[in-house]
Simulated assay, not measured.
Amino acid sequence: MTDGTTGWTGGQRAFGDFAPGLVHYTDKVLFDEVWERGDLSKRDRSLVAVAALTAMGKTDQLRFHLNFARQNGVTEAELKEAILHLAFYTGWPNGMAAMTVLKEIIENSGD
């Protein structure tokens, strides 16, 4: 895009006019600014997001970020290995929950 933004609209699609502040910060700040910074690749940012969300047990957001990680070049095998590794640092239940989400995504993706 010519204005330097990605045109991300995930917040808008999720909340429309219901939560305009959250839409703004999600679309314009988080995805148009933070995710576009050059010091980390999107692939690396995806792995960091997966790790943080797994650690916190945030499976609703993890569902999006596991898919997004795949779009950003993280392989299925790498995600499985990352979650296995995270299980020892974030707690076994969080690792099991994250792996369950990944399994559902892979089984439903047809890959």
Rank of each mutant, 00 (worst) to 15 (best):
M1Y: 11
T2P: 15
G4E: 05
G4C: 04
G4I: 01
T5R: 14
T6F: 11
G7D: 07
W8R: 12
G11E: 01
R13I: 04
R13H: 12
R13L: 10
A14M: 03
F18K: 09
G21Q: 12
L22T: 12
L22F: 13
V23G: 11
H24R: 12
Y25D: 05
Y25G: 03
Y25L: 10
D27L: 04
K28Y: 04
K28E: 13
K28G: 09
V29P: 09
V29Q: 03
W35S: 09
E36N: 15
D39F: 13
S41H: 05
R43L: 03
V48E: 04
A49I: 04
A51I: 01
A51Q: 07
A52E: 05
A52H: 03
A55Y: 06
G57Q: 00
D60F: 11
L62P: 09
R63M: 01
R63F: 10
F64H: 13
H65A: 03
L66A: 05
N67C: 11
Q71D: 13
G73E: 00
T75F: 01
E76M: 01
A77D: 15
E78Q: 14
A82K: 07
A82S: 14
I83P: 06
L84A: 13
H85F: 06
H85K: 10
L86A: 13
A87P: 08
Y89K: 08
T90Y: 00
T90H: 02
G91H: 05
G91N: 08
W92M: 13
P93N: 10
P93M: 06
M96C: 12
A97G: 12
T100R: 15
T100Y: 02
T100A: 15
K103Y: 06
E104L: 02
I106A: 04
E107I: 01
N108C: 06
S109Q: 11
S109C: 07
G110H: 08
G110D: 05
D111Q: 14
D111M: 10
